[in-house]
Simulated scan of single mutants.
Amino acid sequence: MEELQVIQNKIYEIRGYKVMLDRDLAEMYGVQTKVLNQAVKRNPDRFPEDFMFQLTDNETQIWKSQIVTSNSIKMGVRRNPYAFTEHGVIMLASVLRSDIAVQTSILITRAFVAIRELILNPPTDKVTELQQEIKELKTYVEEAFADYNDINDDTRMQLELINQTLAELQSKKSLNDKPRPKIGFVK
């Protein structure tokens, strides 16, 4: 699980794609960045634009400003890095043809899938669960006593308490509903 977290931290969002940069991939695959890029250049037909693209000067500057290193001027980058989408990463494993590349590709693919799952199915919090249960209880009580024309004071008080609890939970939830920062590269 820790390996997936390390990989997920190296996935950025650039141009609307979830991508990994060539230098991070080279490190994970155990090769130099120039070796990885040479393998890609020898197989250009395997890497269309939706698999891989090169960052612009502006995108590279923004990316550099988000990374904290001791040498912030160059960071060892002589040219704009290449960004690989999930499909590009999978294609890299076939181009590099090593056991490490295959295993790393599997881990990276799992990391992309885990991120996609989090986006599609965000984890529910306890407040949301409690709200749902209280709404169900309120509906049950209202339906159970709907036949009675004059609801007794105890039932009326219970309904008011349920409504008050729902209002309190809603106000607490709205305090916790701060927009979450985007993960990865931000333009």
Score class of each variant (00 low, 15 high):
96 L>K: 08
35 V>R: 05
97 R>F: 12
115 I>Q: 05
14 I>T: 06
182 K>P: 09
111 A>Y: 06
76 G>T: 06
30 G>R: 05
99 D>L: 06
130 L>K: 11
99 D>S: 07
49 E>V: 06
96 L>G: 01
150 D>C: 08
51 F>A: 03
154 D>S: 13
111 A>D: 01
110 R>V: 01
51 F>P: 06
159 L>H: 09
97 R>N: 03
41 K>M: 10
70 S>Q: 09
184 G>M: 08
106 I>P: 06
142 E>P: 00
112 F>I: 03
22 D>Q: 04
152 N>I: 14
100 I>T: 04
35 V>C: 05
36 L>W: 02
114 A>Q: 01
61 Q>W: 11
175 L>C: 01
94 S>R: 14
157 M>V: 04
8 Q>I: 07
123 P>W: 03
104 T>P: 05
43 N>F: 02
10 K>C: 09
182 K>H: 08
102 V>Y: 07
182 K>W: 09
15 R>A: 06
157 M>R: 13
95 V>Y: 06
149 N>Q: 11
29 Y>H: 00
89 V>R: 02
165 T>M: 10
2 E>N: 14
17 Y>L: 07
27 E>A: 12
5 Q>K: 11
59 E>N: 07
63 W>I: 01
183 I>L: 15
32 Q>K: 07
50 D>E: 10
49 E>H: 07
30 G>Y: 00
1 M>P: 09
41 K>W: 02
57 D>R: 07
167 A>G: 14
38 Q>P: 03
152 N>V: 05
153 D>W: 14
82 Y>E: 02
187 K>P: 11
117 E>F: 06
129 E>R: 07
20 M>T: 04
69 T>C: 00
18 K>E: 15
87 H>E: 12
94 S>A: 14
163 N>L: 12
72 S>T: 08
135 K>C: 06
138 K>H: 13
55 L>M: 00
32 Q>C: 03
165 T>D: 11
53 F>T: 00
98 S>D: 05
176 N>L: 12
6 V>T: 14
98 S>L: 02
8 Q>T: 14
112 F>E: 01
160 E>F: 12
98 S>P: 10
34 K>D: 05
117 E>K: 14
87 H>Y: 03
16 G>K: 15
33 T>Y: 02
38 Q>D: 02
83 A>D: 04
49 E>N: 09
149 N>K: 08
59 E>D: 05
165 T>G: 12
159 L>Y: 11
16 G>M: 11
182 K>V: 10
121 N>A: 09
52 M>L: 09
124 T>Y: 13
150 D>A: 15
122 P>K: 13
96 L>R: 03
159 L>Q: 14
19 V>I: 05
187 K>W: 08
65 S>Q: 12
104 T>C: 01
146 A>G: 05
79 R>D: 07
119 I>Y: 15
71 N>L: 03
7 I>W: 03
183 I>P: 08
180 R>K: 14
10 K>N: 15
67 I>D: 13
98 S>T: 10
